[in-house]
């Protein structure tokens, strides 16, 4: 199976989906990433990533209730799946593991 490893962008999208729960959908994910990561991604980029993640089974989706704010159009709400959460955790553990093994001297190198 392809994509066993999370890409950097995918990881951020997944984290955003988690953070925004239960209100993660295209626009909110896009805004979150643009605001916190200080990037400027297009709405379609967010959609692409979300759908790819859904295809991989890392997020699940369902349509929310129709409201009057979006011209009556329903939102497609994304929630993280257990596999998604596992992947995120793996990625974090990998990093934490590496971080903890960095010798102190490395930080001293660039003190100033």
């Amino acid at each position: 199976m392809k994509g066993t490893q999370l890409g950097e962008f995918e990881e951020i999208v997944l984290l955003a989906v988690c953070k925004l729960y239960p209100d993660a959908y295209g626009v909110s994910v896009k805004n979150e990433i643009n605001d916190t990561a200080n990037r400027s991604i297009n709405l379609s980029t967010a959609h692409g990533a979300l759908n790819r993640l859904e295809e991989k089974g890392l997020v699940g989706s369902e349509f929310g209730e129709a409201t009057s704010t979006r011209g009556g159009k329903r939102k497609k709400m994304f929630t993280i799946t257990s596999i998604g959460l596992k992947k995120l955790r793996e990625a974090k553990e990998l990093r934490d593991g590496l971080w903890s093994q960095i010798p102190e001297v490395v930080f001293d190198l660039h003190q100033s």
């Binding site: 959908y25 295209g26 626009v27 704010t69 011209g71 159009k73 939102k75």
Partner: peptide, 14 residues
Amino acid sequence: SEEISGDLLEEMED
């Protein structure tokens, strides 16, 4: 298309 147009509308307002 429903999802896209909904999101686009929000995007547009913003």
